[in-house]
């Protein structure tokens, strides 16, 4: 299948590991990603909270570009995914808003009928590509690796989408089938605070400490994430959390596509694992060194 790829601003550089691994994994599984030419920022949740019509017009420009390509959008960043999907929903439910947005888009020589579907890589990999295809292409087993899958808030909420909102299981199933020992992780959809790390740092540090504590208590070797913001908070602020709460967490954080890439036998370098701040645990480095199972 072909998809219109919308990387989003964080994946361009600061979270290049996610971008690189998504592209590699999809290619390895025979899926074609075509980057939307000249996409713009979706506005993120921050924009939504300020101006309604403007934010909808800004994000629908991307939907209109994908509609022209005749492809569904794949958006790995949770924030982009939520905003684009929410824009779709509002435009479908409020016809006046759809009209207004189209009026604005006309100024840029575009129009949007409302046909683009917005999808997340977890959904596509598990529901379209399917676990059988993944296993068929897998080169390594995650045997013995204890994984805590962290979904975060925005890929499953607010609307009922491709997985359960309180207890999503697609990632659990994915890594379980790949041989990993998926540990119980009751905080799998608990919020990491997102941008609160900038505006209310103390609160965000506490939220992330609780997440790390929960993963650690359940014996996780690694936390896998689906969102650049969760990833950054858990990874880049782990030092600060240790300092503030007198803890000694040293849990590597990987994008789910990076770990999946290892399973598919893709080289570490191509998956952007070298961009991680926290060194990988021995189990993972051993896995990366093994060539074939």
């Amino acid at each position: 299948m072909k998809y219109a790829y919308y990387p989003g601003c964080s994946l361009e550089k600061t979270q290049r590991g996610y971008d690189e691994s998504v592209r590699e994994v999809f290619e390895a599984l025979g899926q074609e990603l075509i980057e939307i030419d000249d996409w713009n920022c979706c506005g993120a949740t921050i924009y939504m909270s300020v101006k309604e019509t403007v934010s909808l017009a800004v994000s629908s420009r991307n939907l209109a570009l994908a509609e022209k390509m005749g492809l569904d959008i794949i958006a790995p960043c949770s924030s982009c995914f939520t905003v684009l999907a929410k824009t779709n929903r509002i435009l479908n439910q409020v016809p006046e808003m759809h009209k207004d947005v189209n009026e604005a888009l006309t100024e840029g020589g575009l129009s949007y009928k409302g046909k683009t579907k917005v999808r997340h890589p977890v959904d596509i990999l598990m529901n379209d590509v399917g676990i059988e295809t993944i296993l068929h292409n897998s080169k390594k087993s995650l045997n013995g690796l204890k994984v805590a899958p962290y979904y975060g808030c925005q890929i499953v909420r607010p609307e009922k989408g491709f997985d359960d909102r309180e207890n999503p299981i697609l990632l659990d199933r994915m890594f379980n089938k790949c041989g990993a020992d998926v540990v119980p992780f009751p905080m799998k959809v608990r919020c990491c605070g997102g941008m609160l790390m900038t505006t209310f740092e103390d609160t965000a540090l506490k939220l992330n400490m609780e997440l790390l504590q929960c993963a650690d208590n359940n014996g996780a070797d690694v936390i896998v994430t689906t969102c650049p913001l969760c990833h950054f908070n858990l990874e880049a602020y782990q030092d600060k959390i240790n300092e503030k709460y007198q803890t000694k967490y040293n849990i590597p954080i990987l994008y789910f596509t990076q770990l999946l890439g290892i399973v598919l036998g893709l080289p570490e370098k191509k998956l952007g694992i070298d961009s991680s701040f926290i060194p990988m645990c021995k189990k993972i480095t051993d896995l990366m060194e093994v060539q074939y199972v």
């Binding site: 000249d38 019509t53 017009a57 420009r61 207004d100 604005a104 006309t106 100024e107 840029g108 575009l110």
Partner: peptide
């Protein structure tokens, strides 16, 4: 690249708002 076109979209959306 389409910076000018995006700006026009935003400006129009602001007017509508």
């Amino acid at each position: 690249k389409a910076y000018a076109s995006l700006s026009r979209i935003i400006k129009k959306a602001q007017e509508i708002e």
